[in-house]
């Protein structure tokens, strides 16, 4: 019978879950590393096709949202509920912006005939097919994580609004925040690996 909430324990549990997420993406980075070694030239060509500006913009958006999520945790601990709500809404909004950008980016690629199993890729350079295959899988999986992160943040927001999260009980918010930062972490690696190679 636990009489009080063990915040540290909840956090350890969350971190353990995050490790599994890191390794999940890690498997894809193993593929990236191996294929980059195999087709460096095609990867350079592929990287040039991606829009650095959109990529950089998305990086900034995610960093900003990461900051606001961290700030919302500071705010709840300091007891300013309104600020917490504001920060959270802004973070979710950032996630939304990120997805919209991604949508346009993918849309443009698909419009140019670059998508999995498309004629252009199948008949083109094999290395290029692999580059875009990895691009779609990694950014797709990352996008999925953004959506999950947004859902978690929204639940936290709802709980803050309902008064279930406050300065003494904020593990849910804390853990959603950790998840959101992880999504950011992965993007920090995805961005240079895909947009800035060679």
């Amino acid at each position: 019978m636990r009489s009080e909430i063990d915040r540290v324990g909840l956090k350890i549990g969350m971190w353990l879950f995050l490790y599994s997420e890191i390794i999940l993406f890690g498997g894809l980075f193993v593929l990236y590393a191996a294929y980059f070694h195999k087709h460096p030239a095609s990867f350079a060509v592929g990287g040039k096709e991606l829009n650095r500006v959109i990529g950089a913009l998305n990086t900034v958006v995610l960093l900003l949202s990461s900051f606001t999520v961290a700030a919302s945790i500071t705010a709840i601990q300091k007891g300013s509920r309104k600020l917490t709500i504001g920060f959270l809404i802004f973070s979710i909004f950032c996630g939304f912006i990120f997805l919209v950008n991604k949508y346009f980016e993918w849309g443009a690629k698909i419009h140019h005939g670059i998508y999995p199993n498309s004629e252009t890729l199948v008949n083109g350079e094999p290395g290029l097919n692999i580059f875009f295959g990895l691009y779609y899988v990694i950014t797709g999986l990352h996008g999925l994580h953004i959506i999950i992160g947004m859902v978690l943040l929204s639940i936290s927001l709802a709980l803050v609004l309902a008064g279930k999260i406050d300065g003494s009980r904020f593990s849910m918010l804390d853990n959603s925040g950790l998840y959101w930062h992880l999504v950011d972490l992965i993007w920090i690696f995805v961005f240079p690996l895909f947009y800035l190679v060679l």
Binding site: S66, V69, A70, H181, D184, L185, I188, P192, V197
Partner: peptide, 16 residues
């Protein structure tokens, strides 16, 4: 690029 990414990641990890 990877070194810079690692540096950024350490900041996120340590503080955020």
């Amino acid at each position: 690029a990877l070194a810079i990414a690692c540096l950024k990641v350490s900041f996120v990890l340590l503080f955020f």
